[in-house]
Design a protein around this nucleic acid. Structure first.
Lengths: 338, 338
DNA sequence: GTGAAAGCGCTAACAA
DNA sequence: TTGTTAGCGCTTTCAC
C-alpha cells in the first residue's frame, strides 16, 4: 500500500495525501476527512525509506556496544533509548563481542543505513577507530574510552575512583591489598583503575607487588580463578582484594567462601559497578557505583546537539565525566582487630 | 557521495559501478579496476535506503522487548543478534518498558521502517497485539508468551518447570513452601508457574495457602519485600520459598539474612533463571535454568524461515519449547533434620 | 486548494 | 560489455 493507492481510494492526489499525513499545507476539510478515513481503514504507514531518501534523515541512531547483555552496556543503552525514543528516533544495534573488526564493520554499515548519529560504547580505542570515524562524517559520541583527538566522549573517572576505593580499604586497616584487573588495551579499566590503585598504595608508602596482581575478563568465573591464583601464589595472603568489576569481586568471594575464608574478617572485598548485584549480595559488596544509564543519557544529549545544530560542526565538548559514588557494604567493614 | 558521482570520477556509468559493487553482470577488468580504485579512495558506501526502496528488503529485524537491560531479554537479544548479524541483518530495537501502548507503537514504527521480520519478546499478549500483528503483514515470532491464534512462538515450559522445582523442594523434606510470583497478566510467569507450584503441592496432598503467596515484580527489591511479607504474615513460618525469578529469590535471601535466618537450614530457596547470578551467589542458588540465548536463536530461525521462503506463507510451527534444567545449589540442600 | 512532475540514490531491463 | 532509462514511494516546488 503506497501513497498513490491511498490517493486513488480517496479520490485525490498523492500530494494532498502527503499534506494531510504531514500536516503541511492546506487541504479542504472535506477532502481531508476522506483521506483520513482511508488512512484509518487501510492502516497505511508511509515508507520510511522513501521518506528518508528525500529528507536525508533516517531518525535512527546507531549504537555500537561490546556486549548486548552486559550489565554496564545494557544500562547505557537503556539511557540512550530513554533519551532518543522519546524524540522519535530508533536505535540500530551493533553488537561486536569485543571484536575491533566488527566495530569497524558496523561503522560502515551504519553509514549505509544512514544513521543520523552514532554512540560508540568502547572498550578500546585504536587509531583505526579514530581514522574511520573521521572519514565517516557522521556525528559520534564515545562512551567509556578517551579519544586521542577531539571526539566528544563520556567518561568515568576511573583513576580517581580506583584511588578512592584503595584508600577506603587502607583506611579499614588493610595492608596487603590485591588487585584483580583486566587487559591493558582497555585503557579506562585496565590501565587507569590499576594506576589509581597503585598510586593510592604508594602515597601510603606501600609498594604495589606483582604477586598481588591478577587479571580477569570482567566475568564471575575469571574473578574466581584470579582469586585462587592470588591465594595460591602468596605466602603471606592478601587481606583485601579490589576487583575491577563487581562480577569479578563476587567470583572472588565465591572462591574465598569455598576455602572457608570469611569476608570481611579475613579478606575485605571491593568491586566496581554498583547496582543491585552489589547491593543484594551476601555480604553486601563495597563498590564504586557508576551511573551507566546516566552515561547513556549524557552521550545522547551530546549527540543530539550535534545532530540538531549542524551549524556548529565542532563537537560540543571533548570530555564529560559521569560521577561515581563509593558505596560501602559489609564486604569491607573494618574489623575490631584492625 | 552517490553512485553517479562515483561513475563520473571513474569515467563510466552508474550501472557499471552498481555491477561492480554487487558483482552482478560483467565489467571489463580495466574499468572495474578504475571503479574499485575510486570506491577505495572515496570510502563510498551505497545508500541502503535507495537500495531497500528498490528491493523491498531492509535487511533489518525489529526486536520488541520489555526491558533493554533485563537479564533474560538481554540474553534473548544476544541470541537473535548472533543469528541475524551473521546473515547480514541488523537489529532495530524497540524497548517498551512493559507498556502495551509502546509495543503497539513499535509495531507501526517497524512497519514504516520496513523491517523484514519482527521478534516480539513478550510479557503479556492481548487481543490488541494479535489484531495488530495480523494486520501488519510482516513475519513475526513471539518469545515467552503464547499467541491464542497460530502465530509461531517460542516458549518455556513454565508449568512443568515450576512443578519440578516444587517437587524438588518437597523431596528435601520441606512442607510449608511459599511462592513469590508476579502479576497474573503475565500468563507464562504469573499464571503457569504458579499453577505448576500449586499442582505439585496438591499431588502431595498439600493445599496451597493464600498466606504463603506473595507477589513481586521480578526485581531484587520486590523479592526482599515479598519475603518480609511472608514472614510477618505467617505464624508458622514457611520452610521453603520458591521465587519466580532468581533476583526475587536473592532479594528474599537478603531479607532472611538480615533477620538472622539461615538458608537452607531454616528456609530453603529456589529461583528461576539460571546463569552466573545463581551460580555465584552465596549460598549457590537452586534455580530453573532457562537458556534465554537459545530462545533467541530458535525464534530467529523460525523467523528466518518465514522471511526466506515466502512461498510457504503459513507459519512454520505454532509452539516450540526451549528446554530447562533444574540446577540444585546449596540454597535447597536437604538438611539432616529433614 | 490542488495536482502534475521532478528528483532523492539505487537497480534492472533494455538498447546499443 | 556498456550506457540509458524507468521506477521504487515519498516530498516539494510550481503551475493551475
Amino acid at each position: 500500500m503506497n501513497i498513490k493507492e491511498i490517493s486513488k481510494l480517496a479520490n485525490t492526489s498523492p500530494s494532498s495525501v502527503s499534506r494531510v499525513i504531514n500536516s503541511s499545507g492546506y487541504v479542504k476539510d472535506e477532502v481531508k476527512q476522506r483521506i483520513l478515513k482511508v488512512l484509518e481503514e487501510t492502516g497505511y504507514r508511509p515508507n520510511a525509506f522513501a521518506k528518508a531518501l528525500h529528507s536525508k534523515k533516517s531518525h535512527t541512531i546507531g549504537v555500537i556496544l561490546p556486549k548486548i547483555n552486559g550489565t554496564s552496556s545494557g544500562e547505557s543503552v537503556s539511557g540512550i533509548d530513554h533519551f532518543f525514543s522519546s524524540r522519535g528516533y530508533s536505535l540500530l544495534l551493533g553488537n561486536t563481542d569485543h571484536q575491533v573488526k566488527k566495530e569497524l564493520e558496523f561503522l560502515d554499515l551504519f553509514k549505509e543505513k544512514q544513521v543520523d548519529g552514532i554512540i560508540f560504547i568502547a572498550t578500546r580505542f585504536t587509531p583505526e577507530h579514530q581514522e574511520k570515524l573521521n572519514k565517516l562524517g557522521i556525528p559520534v559520541v564515545i562512551i567509556g574510552q578517551e579519544s586521542p583527538e577531539n571526539l566528544p566522549c563520556v567518561l568515568f573517572d576511573e583513576y580517581q575512583a580506583a584511588k578512592r576505593m584503595t584508600e577506603h580499604l587502607l583506611a579499614t586497616g588493610k595492608q596487603r591489598i590485591a588487585f584483580i584487573g583486566v587487559d591493558k588495551w582497555d585503557i579506562s579499566v585496565g590501565v587507569l583503575r590499576h594506576k589509581g590503585y597503585c598510586d593510592a598504595l604508594m602515597e601510603h608508602n606501600i609498594t604495589p607487588e606483582d604477586s598481588l596482581f591478577a587479571r580477569g575478563d570482567f566475568t564471575h568465573q575469571s574473578g574466581f580463578i584470579a582469586c585462587r591464583h592470588l591465594l595460591e601464589h602468596n605466602d603471606i595472603k592478601p587481606d583485601a582484594i579490589f576487583a575491577a568489576s563487581d562480577k569479578m569481586a563476587i567470583g572472588a568471594m565465591s572462591y574465598l567462601f569455598s576455602t572457608g575464608l570469611r569476608v570481611p574478617e579475613d579478606i575485605s572485598i571491593g568491586g566496581v559497578g554498583g547496582g543491585t548485584l552489589a547491593e543484594f549480595y551476601n555480604p553486601k559488596l563495597t563498590t564504586l557505583a557508576y551511573d551507566y544509564k546516566q552515561s547513556g543519557i549524557i552521550a545522547s544529549e551530546l549527540l543530539y546537539q550535534q545532530i540538531t545544530s549542524p551549524a556548529q560542526k565542532e563537537p560540543p565538548a571533548h570530555k564529560t565525566y559521569v560521577p561515581y559514588e563509593l558505596i560501602i557494604g559489609k564486604s569491607s567493614e573494618s574489623q575490631p582487630q584492625g
